[in-house]
C-alpha cells in the first residue's frame, strides 16, 4: 500500500471562519520518507499549505508539529515511526495560537525563554584568552545546551498549557539550568531568586511529557529537579 491517508489541520484567517481537517491522499511510492517530505508533496498539490521548515535535519527546530497525537520534528520523523493504520494526522503544536495551518505563534514560548536571561553572566573581568573550564565542568552542560527551541516539550506540557504566561516551561527551564550549571556563570543567586515563586518552576508536576517528546533526547524534567535542589540548598 503506497498511498498514505493524511488528515491535516487547515486554517487561513483570511478565508476560513473556523479551522477544519483536510484529507489528502499522498503517494509515497512505498518509501519510508520523513513526514516533512510528505508535507512537501502535499504543498505541490496545494501551494497554500503553510508550515515552517529550514534545515531539514533536526537541528534548527522549525518544524515541530503534532503527528498522530505526539509532538516531534517532521524532518527527522520517518513515517514508519508514526503512522497508525496507514493514516497520518498532522496538527499544529498544541496550546499556542494558530497563525495559519501548522504555523503557530511562538511568542509566549520565546518570552519564557527570554525571561530566564539565557546568556552567560560573569562579573569578573574577562582574561586575554578564554576562561578556563575543566572537561568535568564542561560535561555538566551536556544534555542542556543542545536544545533547539522547537517547543515540542513546552507545548506537550499541561502546566504550560494552563499557565503559558507564568510557568517558564520545560524548554526555558532547561536553558535556565544550562546557565546555573555553567562553572563560568556568576549570577546563580539572582537567577534562583527569579525562580522561587509558585509558578516559574513549581508548576512542573513531573509528568515527563517533555522527556517523551524531545527530538534531541534531552531531559528537562531532570534539569527542573536540579533547579529545585539548588533552590532548596540555597534557601534552607
Amino acid at each position: 500500500m503506497s498511498t498514505l491517508q493524511v488528515s491535516i489541520y487547515r486554517y487561513n484567517p483570511e478565508t476560513d471562519s473556523a479551522p477544519y481537517m483536510q484529507e489528502f491522499q499522498v503517494d509515497t511510492q512505498g518509501r519510508d520518507v520523513m513526514v516533512l517530505d510528505v508535507l512537501h508533496m502535499m504543498k505541490e498539490d496545494d501551494n497554500g499549505l503553510a508550515y515552517r521548515r529550514s534545515c531539514r535535519e533536526g537541528v534548527c527546530g522549525s518544524d515541530g508539529m503534532n503527528m498522530n497525537g505526539k509532538n516531534g520534528l517532521a524532518c527527522i520523523t520517518p513515517l514508519s515511526e508514526v503512522i497508525k493504520g496507514n493514516k497520518l494526522v498532522l496538527r499544529p503544536l498544541p496550546g499556542l495560537p494558530v497563525i495559519r495551518d501548522l504555523v503557530v505563534d511562538m511568542g509566549l514560548f520565546y518570552k519564557q525563554y527570554e525571561r530566564i536571561q539565557p546568556y552567560l553572566q560573569n562579573d569578573t573581568p574577562a582574561p586575554a584568552i578564554e576562561r578556563l573550564q575543566s572537561p568535568e565542568d564542561r560535561d555538566k552542560l551536556d544534555g542542556l545546551y543542545e536544545c533547539i527551541l522547537c517547543a515540542c516539550c513546552s507545548t506537550s506540557c499541561p502546566s504550560f498549557w494552563w499557565n503559558p504566561d507564568k510557568f517558564v516551561g520545560p524548554a526555558g527551564l532547561l536553558q535556565s539550568y544550562r546557565f546555573l550549571a555553567d562553572s563560568r556563570d556568576t549570577a546563580t543567586g539572582s537567577r534562583l531568586a527569579e525562580l522561587e515563586d509558585p509558578f516559574s518552576v513549581f508548576r512542573c508536576r513531573g509528568i515527563m511529557n517533555c522527556v517523551a517528546v524531545c527530538p534531541k533526547g534531552l531531559n528537562p524534567t531532570r534539569a527542573i529537579g536540579k533547579i529545585r535542589d539548588m533552590l532548596m540548598a540555597n534557601a534552607t
Binding site: 515552517r52 529550514s54 534545515c55 535535519e57 537541528v59 534548527c60 527546530g61 522549525s62 511562538m106 520565546y110 533547539i148 527551541l149
Partner: peptide, 10 residues
Amino acid sequence: VFPTRSHTVS
C-alpha cells in the same frame, strides 16, 4: 526565519 533557525546552526 527566527534567528536560531538560520543555517549557521547546522
